[in-house]
């Protein structure tokens, strides 16, 4: 048994909280029912630090810090809500909507989408930036699942679950910058991949309608990533 990690006390939004030294600000906040918005974070996967929604203010630190990867420290004073943070968070959501073709009304995940929820939660009622309207493919070659690049926000949860949990390494990221997109193996049609185990984990962790199960519509298409915690827990026990 490892020695218990030391406990740190800190202040989040004026509230005194304590957390283990190996916990992130995000963990500590959520344990104390202080909500911090996230999109790329998912319990059970490694952190990407990519969506920037969880940025928080730390007293004494000029730069905003991502709560998901910043470990708690003794005496830390964290602010998770401020007009500045809220403005940036709304802009992140706007940028995502403008980047690809998220047409909520005709999306499989309409009303079950984390991006759509986030827009509502943050009060994004319209997107001020010009929509880019890229022309993107939809890969329907897999017998059970579909990948619609129009709806992908590149959170890479699918890449991480495929690499870290399933171990198949089927998903990867092609190229870079605004042209980056997901690929399976050597950018082949998903249905022809021979590394894919068709386990469907990527579909369950996808926050939007980018990855979905064929023939499931409406409430049936609700995602459920809770299996991650179960798998990780069981693995821990086996060890």
């Amino acid at each position: 048994m490892n020695p218990a990690p030391s406990v740190k006390t800190l202040m989040i939004d004026g509230k005194d909280v304590s957390a283990r030294a190996d916990q992130s600000i995000l963990d500590a906040a959520r344990e104390n029912a202080i909500p911090i918005p996230t999109l790329c974070h998912l319990d059970g996967l490694s952190e990407a630090g990519a969506c920037r929604l969880c940025l928080v203010e730390l007293k004494g630190t000029p730069r905003l810090q991502p709560a998901c990867v910043t470990l708690v420290e003794e005496g830390m004073e964290v602010t998770t809500q401020s007009p500045r943070l809220e403005k940036y968070r709304r802009m992140v959501v706007e940028l995502l909507f403008a980047e690809r073709n998220h047409v909520c009304s005709v999306c499989v995940s309409n009303n079950m989408c984390e991006l759509q929820d986030m827009a509502k939660q943050l009060g994004v009622t319209h997107v001020r930036f010009p929509y880019r309207y890229p022309r993107l493919p939809v890969d329907t070659t897999h017998e059970r699942f579909t990948m619609d690049h129009n709806r992908c926000i590149l959170c890479t949860r699918c890449v991480r679950v495929c690499t870290e949990i399933e171990g198949a390494h089927t998903w990867g990221v092609f190229g870079r910058g605004v042209d980056a997109h997901l690929i399976t193996d050597l950018d082949i049609p998903w249905g022809t991949s021979d590394t894919c185990t068709s386990c469907g984990k990527c579909v369950q962790v996808c926050p939007t309608g980018a990855l979905f199960e064929k023939s499931k519509v409406g409430m049936q298409s609700q995602k459920n990533p809770d299996f991650l915690n179960y798998l990780n827990e069981m693995r821990e026990i086996e060890r």
Partner: peptide, 19 residues
């Protein structure tokens, strides 16, 4: 008032914009 997604986002009519 922009009423509804077509007015607010372009929505389905704007799906032609990629072509």
């Amino acid at each position: 008032v922009s009423l509804g997604d077509c007015a607010v986002t372009g929505n389905v009519p704007a799906m032609r914009n990629s072509f």
